[in-house]
Amino acid sequence: MTKGPVPQSDDEAELPFPTGDTMDERSFFAEQPAKANTLTKPTALSGAAGKEEHYHGHRERLRSRFRDHGDTALADYELLELMLFRLIPRRDTKPIAKALLDRFGSLGAVFGAPVALLQEVKGVGEAVALDLKLISTIAHRTLKSELRGKQVLSSWSSVIEYCHAAMAHETREQFRILFLDKRNALIADEVQGLGTVDHTPVYTREVVKRALELSATALILVHNHPSGDPTPSRADIDMTKMIIDTAKPLGITVHDHIIVGKDGHASLRGLRLI
């Protein structure tokens, strides 16, 4: 019995060259020295090299546009394609970039998507999916670092930007708390609970207990609506008021409860619901 073909991962499928530990994008596109008896007639290998040379030219053009004119010169799929060059060095990444945006709808949603869902897109294997999540995590940490040591209430736009980046595209509800000191500077940012697509259990005693452990004097409550609509529910309002009533006698102020969705955010304080 003859053996069938060896299965390949999505990252390696349809590669025009065999992969190896010693090959990277630079060595792949480097001009190779001529060898005896190899220039007499075209081969499948030379045809593949010509195809890759076309991709290489396209990649260089995109890099030049980005270098000379910045991100405004590129469409969303081109920015994603430009990043995928290093993650998938030996394939045409334009179809993959477009497929990711078609599947998830926006750049933010691509980076916010779970690893398992990213791998459902043809051409995206586990390694690429993890790299996308790594880039997303670095972006979140960068935004979070902007809040460190600052008076959060005077950097409200940064708070909203961070919460949206961290939570807007989560597929399950999560309840997050920003713990602040007496100067309203950030002490800690913690996810207190994970729930389902439309509910997260919140335990008032645990919220107040953790605030006391951290010596926090103020809180900002945050949770997301995976549906995309940030409109607060009756349960959201009641839960917030319960935490306020429990925390206030202990000298802990709840500044706001922010609800984040793909379509924006809602502030219970801003809506005068608390």
Rank of each mutant, 00 (worst) to 15 (best):
K209L: 03
M83A: 09
T43P: 06
I274L: 14
A166K: 12
I259R: 03
S64W: 07
A116E: 13
A266M: 11
A73L: 05
R269N: 12
T19Q: 12
D181P: 06
R63T: 11
P95C: 06
S227T: 15
F111R: 02
I274W: 01
I258L: 15
Q192C: 08
A109W: 03
D245N: 15
T40Q: 08
Q32P: 04
P33N: 08
R90Q: 10
D263G: 01
H255R: 05
L186K: 08
V128T: 15
L143D: 11
L268N: 01
R59E: 08
G112W: 06
A34Y: 06
A165Q: 10
I259M: 04
T171G: 04
S233W: 06
L153I: 04
G108H: 05
M23H: 07
K41N: 08
D131K: 13
Y55F: 11
F104L: 06
L62F: 03
S9D: 08
P18A: 15
A166E: 14
L80C: 05
D229H: 02
Y77E: 14
V115Y: 00
D102A: 12
K41W: 11
V115A: 12
Y77G: 02
E31K: 13
F175Y: 14
P42W: 05
D10C: 00
I160A: 09
M1S: 10
L143P: 02
K3E: 07
A211M: 07
E213R: 00
T72V: 10
T40W: 08
D236P: 04
R67K: 13
H56D: 12
V121Y: 04
Y55T: 13
E190V: 15
A188Q: 13
T137I: 00
D76F: 07
R67H: 10
I237W: 01
I160T: 11
R148Y: 05
T43N: 08
A48S: 15
K150Y: 00
H199G: 01
T204H: 03
F29P: 01
S136T: 05
I187N: 00
F104E: 11
D236R: 02
V159K: 03
E81D: 02
I187S: 02
G251N: 08
A48N: 14
L271D: 09
E81L: 00
A109K: 10
E60I: 07
A48W: 02
M242E: 13
I88R: 13
I160N: 04
